[in-house]
Amino acid sequence: MSTSAKLKREMPQRYRMEAGKCTTCGYIAFPPRSICPECQAREFDTVILPDEGTILTHTVIRVAPSQFTDEAPYAIAIIELGEGARVLCQLVDCDLEQIAIGDPVKIEFRRIQAEGKSGVLFYGYKAVPA
């Protein structure tokens, strides 16, 4: 399938949360970038994002896109993982009515999407209450 290349290409970020850290200003680029949006420098070190953080904002998706309709309702949050690194991901294993800004969370490895019943499986990071 054509999605195999994409799945493979994105593994460093989806599986290991590899980011780029600007050697000049410390900006954390996730995913990695070629040029720093803060200082335009082009040298980055590869770093692994911390697996703990806090919720900056959140929602509960009740009307989902076609490939997620079986999962609805599910929570999505923007998570601050330290040093200014932020990710958007699902927040699972939580009470959908009790999510609050500032809640501590940790990252777990979960299945994100499946390509139909017979295609490839996409894994990656989700947040769970800490």
């Binding site: 929602t59 009307v63 989902a64 896109p65 999505i76």
Partner: peptide
């Protein structure tokens, strides 16, 4: 597509997060 939509967020969802913030 790779860092928002991939995770199942929708446009109402993105604006809902702006609203909560």
């Amino acid at each position: 597509q790779d860092y928002e939509s991939f995770h199942g967020v929708t446009f109402p969802g993105l604006y809902a997060m702006i609203a909560n913030a």
